[in-house]
Nucleic acid binder design. Structure first.
Lengths: 223, 223, 223, 223
DNA sequence: TATGAATGAGTCTTCATTCAT
DNA sequence: CATGAATGAAGACTCATTCAT
């Protein structure tokens, strides 16, 4: 996450010379929050500005127009999620994968972990990515870690051929399912939490449910 | 203040009286299609009217206002999905369930089958139900087949206690997962279809994938 | 339903920045004039704006909505009339009245004098206060100088008991009659001025007529 | 008042052959009531129709358009008031007047009496006649009993010259004042009835107040 | 940098009016 | 006579955008 410049004094009444303050960053933060809450289309420029403590005209000053604000939100906030989930480390090397089971499990855990830093992400994803006309879908397609995604899919396919994974799954779809189910459950927690008989689930329990459900799924029916 | 008095005394309006009756039905169809495509909030009354071949005023003639149009769409179109999925028959008796495995499998199949009659449903569901601020979410909560949902959840719990189903799953969550994953995959077909290495999947293949993934999931780890 | 999302992303609006500031004041002036001429309900926001030399959107900029424009007109223009008529000075002390005859006479004169500064007042009063569904009636009831009104009425009652005023009058009604007759005649000047045989009356003559008519009225029949 | 044809059976559901019923008269009655209550401009064609138990299109069938409905209301309902007030009889012969005092007193009594048959009249008068832009004002000017009005005014003038009436009054204005004050008080009964210290006044008390106030007024200061 | 004032293009909604049936 | 369906013209209100200061 782009670190914000440290705030250098609060604005009181009408701003005079104060300057600084990283208004731009505040606008992005305000925007991403509102986008997740209400959807991008339903969020007005003035709302974003108000949440950032400035006037609507500033949005145009910093971002030229509504569209470019969305661009910036995407590039400077949303992509952070991609990086959190897909960055390579010792255990997670999707482009040179060894263990598909491990990779898929890690994906689930990383997605859940990432939403702790970016709590607005699941809502935003449901609204603006899942959604056919979602305003971030196309943007995401262009910045998608295709390599990594395919790496995992190929790992799955290899395991299938080796008889170590459920052969009825479509490899790519398996990754998508892992991703999608996790985010969907995170995003809809509140709703099914309201259904009678529901249990309030923290991230740990949720993770166990998902991992268990899917891991058994992808490891099953190997014949 | 009772608002203002509109200018009176003009001379206009000449009905064209097109053929093809049931304008009301056409409006509902147009609305549900546009809602799924663009989202409810993004759909203007005039668009709906245009798609039905009439003027915007007709929407108000038949539905009083935007909101009641949405109500009608929900009651007269969307609920059809609930009925297709949850109606009881010989095999599917969620309120007196015998076989959880069978019920869950049937749910997946029924969801997929229902979307053949109601192709707009997955998109609409993602936009307006999954979505926290979706305009159908609250409406759905009021018309939800809670009995049936709980019936299935209880059946799952029973099987878990009997050691015949994955004990790490939250029963209610299992049903939600089945439902959600299926609809999500249906709604996002086009996107992951565009990813390199993707295979175009018809409903049959998709069904096999989901059933296989989840069935192994819910039947796994019984200890 | 949060209404709909307006189409975004157009490029328009170029302020002309006319000279002559205080657009807000101009809007109030325009409004009060039009209100008196046409009635509040019949006055459109756009008319008010046009008369003030701006676009309709400015009315919403300064007053949020139609209703609050009316509120402001009332508070910042109409109440001026109340103050002109009822302010206390050496001669006019309705809360500690000495001479009812003097007070009533002064009321007539003050009403007539006030309408020289606020020429729209009589028409507005007839339309929006007298009128049962007048949009200022309720507002006025809340800001009415009840104390003063009752002071005068009590003064009348005292004189009646002392045998110095017409005993057949209802004290409160006497004050209302004074007020009402004066304003009604001011408001209808033009009409009866058009009747054959009418004389064009200036304020002085009108005042003499009213004072004479009513003063003899309230001082008569003392038995 | 135009006598209405006797109702011949009620309309139930959709009208078939029933006919009759004097729908026209009902529309006029509905209209005059709504006009008095809300004002003419604020009354929609549909409201009138609904109150008469028919659809809006019938208004156009019977009256061609909104304007001509108002014409008819005026001619067939409002003018009844003129006739009630100004018809000549043994005592009231304004065109050959003998006793101005008697005539003026009778005018007050007749106005009050007329409003018992036409209770909507005072409100309508305040809204649509008093009012500069009232929609009945111009119509009334054309059908005004000018002869009679002038007769009374001349009678007043004669008495003034003879030293039997208040010389400071404008004769025409005296008649207008009598008329106007009476109607104004009738129309505003409810408001000042709400002021603290007010007494609920029936027609008799109201009449005594007005007659006393004005009679002393016009008979005073004869020098 | 930042504001406030201003604009013009929508969007919903209401309503008089018309006309086939 | 009467209805219901349909239209087109407003009118209130919102909002992205612009610009002088």
């Amino acid at each position: 996450m782009k670190t914000r410049k440290p705030a250098r004094g609060r604005r009181r009444g009408r701003p005079v010379v104060d300057a600084g303050d990283d208004v731009r960053g505040k606008l992005l933060d305000a925007a991403v929050g509102l986008y997740a809450e209400q959807g991008i289309a339903a969020t007005t420029v003035a709302q974003v500005a108000r949440h950032a403590g400035v006037t609507g005209a500033m949005v145009h000053y910093y971002f030229k127009n509504r569209e470019q604000l969305t661009d910036a939100v995407f590039l400077e906030r949303v992509l952070r999620f991609r990086d959190l989930v897909w960055h390579e480390d010792e255990d997670f090397q999707p482009t040179q994968p060894k263990d598909a089971d491990l990779l898929l499990g890690l994906l689930i855990r990383r997605v859940i972990a990432a939403t702790e830093e970016l709590p607005w992400l699941p809502n935003l994803w449901v609204k603006e990515v899942l959604n056919e006309s979602g305003l971030l879908r196309e943007r995401l397609m262009k910045h998608f870690p295709v390599q990594q995604l395919q790496g995992v899919a190929q790992a799955v396919a290899r395991e299938q051929r080796a008889g170590r994974m459920n052969r009825e799954l479509q490899p790519l779809l398996a990754v998508v399912s892992v991703f999608g189910l996790t985010l969907m459950l995170l995003a809809t927690r509140k709703v099914w939490g309201r259904l009678p008989g529901a249990v309030e689930l923290d991230n740990t329990k949720l993770e166990r449910h998902i991992v268990s459900l899917l891991q058994n799924g992808w490891n099953g029916r190997k014949s």
